[in-house]
């Protein structure tokens, strides 16, 4: 019973504990947590503009979460989603600004090239893991920074003449829609959310309904057993990273083609890739879990922007809450241990 429940119980409990801890921090700092959380809720559901912006924020979170979760299922920790996202963003914008094609070809091409760029960037740690047994975490962290500096360089010295952002993409490559924007009172909501949902279904399908997915999961459970069963572990490791990187690249493409319409020089990371780890973890690495968790974290992030508008409380409180939620989920061993204790006492 407890085992069955804990699949849903631990994430929900962690979120509650995270929000409670956030409230305590606010109380200690002399702020009113009820004001903050009501401003937060208003910032998500208050009017159609806020709702549109919240769904827009959720879009890359779903894809980044899928990227992390997919690699997790093969036993790989893709901490490089951030870098793959930046690379995918630039590649998608490059297609969007360079070619002139009819929309039916241009938009899908731009999205696919974004995904491809992310996949190539993720292939490097996959290859090094498979061939040289190098830990993928370190390689992908290093590639995050490499991606940041290389894309900045390409934006200002290759695509433009020392400017800090590229041209806007052509209208044939945009995900934006006057219809969605009008529906939500002029928010930047775009069709990306549909792409994200399709990707979630694709991930579910690959993992649950195909032989490839079965192999990927088998490698995640036990490499040696998979190898003994005749699976090619190295190929599966690379495959998993490539698919994961493609999701991350799509996330970048959503930002490039939907939210912004250009790529600009970045002083630091977008943070979406790292938040993707939180999303995947809370969503227990399943497609449906990731979508739900992305709605929660994306909503929190978008709603947070309304907190300093209505109250004197800094919006960083939401970052603190999200970090604490990760801590609680990661420490689920402890939560389970307490639950078991309580349960045993009940039996006696």
């Amino acid at each position: 019973m407890v085992k069955k429940m804990s699949g849903l119980f631990i994430p929900v409990l962690s979120v509650v504990l995270g929000l409670l801890a956030g409230a305590i921090i606010m109380l200690v700092s002399g702020y009113n947590p009820i004001d903050a959380y009501s401003a937060l809720l208003y910032g998500i559901f208050g009017d159609s503009y806020f709702l549109g912006e919240a769904i827009r924020t959720v879009t890359p979170y779903i894809l980044a979460g899928l990227a992390v979760a997919f690699a997790f299922r093969t036993g790989l920790f893709n901490i490089g989603v951030e870098g793959q996202l930046i690379v995918g963003w630039l590649a998608a914008v490059w297609v969007g600004t360079t070619f002139e094609l009819p929309m039916l070809i241009h938009l899908p091409l731009a999205i696919l090239v974004g995904g491809l760029a992310g996949a190539v960037w993720a292939f490097i740690p996959g290859l090094l893991k498979a061939k040289f047994r190098v830990h993928e975490v370190i390689v992908s962290i290093m590639l995050n920074y490499t991606a940041l500096h290389v894309t900045n360089y390409i934006i200002s010295y290759v695509l433009t003449d020392k400017l800090d952002k590229t041209n806007n993409i052509f209208a044939t490559a945009t995900l934006r829609s006057p219809f969605l924007s009008g529906l939500t009172d002029g928010s930047r909501l775009h069709w990306g959310i549909i792409v994200a949902m399709i990707c979630a279904i694709i991930m579910w399908f690959i993992l649950e309904k195909t032989t490839t997915g079965f192999e990927l999961k088998a490698v995640g459970f036990n490499q040696h057993a998979s190898e003994y069963a005749g699976m090619n572990v190295n190929r599966n490791i690379m495959m998993s990273m490539v698919i994961s990187g493609a999701f991350a690249g799509f996330a970048g493409a959503m930002e490039g083609l939907g939210t912004f319409g250009y790529a600009s020089i970045k002083g630091g990371f977008t943070g979406i890739g790292f938040d993707g780890i939180a999303v995947a973890l809370l969503g227990a690495n399943t497609a449906i879990g990731v979508v739900l968790a992305a709605f929660l974290f994306g909503g929190l992030k978008a709603g947070a922007l309304n907190i300093p508008v209505e109250t004197p409380i800094p919006n960083e409180i939401v970052d603190i809450v999200i970090a604490l939620i990760i801590f609680f989920v990661a420490s689920s061993y402890f939560i389970r241990w307490i639950l078991n204790r309580i349960n045993k006492k009940g039996v006696k």
């Binding site: 975490v137 780890i277 800094p314 960083e316 409180i317 999200i322 604490l324 801590f327 990661a330």
Partner: peptide, 18 residues
């Protein structure tokens, strides 16, 4: 690694908040 990532997020959030 997850705990380390959480430390990073928490540190940035907490210090900017303060």
């Amino acid at each position: 690694t997850v705990s380390g990532v959480a430390i990073n997020l928490l540190a940035v959030g907490l210090t900017l908040f303060l």
